[in-house]
Lab assay of single mutants.
Amino acid sequence: MASQGTKRSYEQMETDGERQNATEIRASVGKMIDGIGRFYIQMCTELKLSDYEGRLIQNSLTIERMVLSAFDERRNKYLEEHPSAGKDPKKTGGPIYKRVDRKWMRELVLYDKEEIRRIWRQANNGDDATAGLTHMMIWHSNLNDTTYQRTRALVRTGMDPRMCSLMQGSTLPRRSGAAGAAVKGVGTMVMELIRMIKRGINDRNFWRGENGRKTRSAYERMCNILKGKFQTAAQRAMMDQVRESRNPGNAEIEDLIFLARSALILRGSVAHKSCLPACVYGPAVASGYDFEKEGYSLVGIDPFKLLQNSQVYSLIRPNENPAHKSQLVWMACNSAAFEDLRVLSFIRGTKVSPRGKLSTRGVQIASNENMDAMESSTLELRSRYWAIRTRSGGNTNQQRASAGQISVQPAFSVQRNLPFDKPTIMAAFTGNTEGRTSDMRAEIIRMMEGAKPEEMSFQGRGVFELSDERAANPIVPSFDMSNEGSYFFGDNAEEYDN
């Protein structure tokens, strides 16, 4: 993207840094990872977990959730003011799984939030270390993106479920800051804005008074975040219109849905970061690795190297396929839920299948599930090659597409044709070009129609051997075009429920 120079890199967003050079960025990201790792080690000690239990991804998720809940100030305040039966607002906890007599047992633990905050700050040299908290939120978000298709949420806001490739980060909490905003897809931002506008339509006082002023500035800020994701002048001009509207209503909703559809071809720039579970960072720190000293990046080879040398386990339900569970977590670790499966298959070195073909449910185990038949197995999170994460949407291309997802959002900077089903997408653009945004709409449609099938995206960008740390010898991959490109292809993934 041309304006790259004016933006802070995501590592800076990730670490609240002012302008830093590459070495400083690597050190501050490393410091953040160190903090998460030290916190995780301490929690495993508190909970008396064995090494194996500490490497269980379900335990990692519970521990991450506990610290996120302990620092969720708004919710904590709300819980104190609106006490609900049987919930102690000062405590947080969740299921911890232990191996007892050759069987997995679930144990519900409860801790004072104050105590968890103390352990977290102690692991982070006394700081609140917001960057580390956001990092864990993005890992949870990436896992949700890989596990669930947001059909219901899309339909509720009037969008087409086939636009799911635009929904990265749709389950990120509001408090995820600049680093969170960077990884949100165009569809996620559109959905947040539509929800806001709908509230304004239904509630006369939404934009009024002292609160209304705050609401208005939040609305304009979200519009600017979305505008910054678009790469064409016409899309940005249309966002200006939406932002400046005196009284946002149905016309703005129409414009936003139009823009979301246009992003299936004229893709937005959305950041991709490899955020790993805390149970990967903990053992690495415990083994003596100093992330701050060595430096770390979320968008280069580092996460690949770390996963190459990590042992992570997962509980497996009786009829689940461990290899499929591994694929789910591998995609989440690489922030690749909406990437082209052919690119992923090449990088991973084994075939990556669409969601609907995987015999696996989510990673988390519900409290009512029976533990008797639970097994555990090693997650295979290694890769054959590594590639640089991208934040450009890439230019655009036609490809055989599917009944489910009709476009992709690249996660890796790797040369390819970008699949999208042009006739299906263009069919949504018939007729409606009147109104105050008509010239911009016409211009956007013209650009979409001009998108050429034979153009290559990320020209000359390749993948790298894991021994090639400096990215000196790019390998331009070859793809098996007979395979499906979309992950949520004609899909039956479970729906995400809060």
Rank of each mutant, 00 (worst) to 15 (best):
E455M: 08
E434W: 06
P474L: 02
Q4F: 15
S326T: 08
Y10F: 11
L306K: 05
L133D: 14
A428P: 01
M447T: 08
I425L: 08
M136D: 01
R55K: 15
W104S: 08
E14R: 03
F71G: 08
T45M: 11
Q20L: 03
R55T: 07
I57D: 07
R102D: 01
M371E: 02
P89R: 02
G35E: 03
N417E: 00
S310L: 06
I444T: 14
E46P: 15
L466E: 00
H135R: 08
M222G: 14
N368T: 14
T151C: 02
Y289N: 08
F71Y: 15
E53D: 13
R117E: 06
M238R: 02
R26Q: 08
R26A: 13
G228A: 10
Q405V: 00
E11M: 12
V352H: 02
V363W: 00
D468S: 07
L68G: 10
R461P: 02
G462C: 08
R470I: 00
P83L: 01
V270E: 07
L154M: 08
I225G: 12
E24G: 00
E73I: 15
R208F: 02
S392M: 05
R26W: 04
C333W: 09
N473H: 09
I425Q: 02
K273I: 07
M13G: 06
S335V: 03
T171E: 11
M163D: 01
L344M: 07
A427S: 13
S69D: 06
E80A: 09
A427R: 05
Q12F: 08
S383L: 00
H135P: 11
A427T: 15
R121H: 12
G435D: 11
E46A: 03
G490S: 12
L68T: 07
A286W: 15
T62Q: 03
E454Y: 11
G169V: 10
T147A: 02
A233P: 15
C279K: 09
K87D: 02
E292H: 12
E320R: 09
N397E: 00
D497P: 00
N319Q: 13
R436H: 10
R236W: 07
P303Y: 02
R243E: 07
P477K: 01
A387E: 02
R175C: 03
K98D: 01
G460W: 05
N309T: 15
R216N: 07
L381I: 06
F258V: 11
P95T: 05
G282T: 08
S245M: 01
T45C: 14
M32T: 10
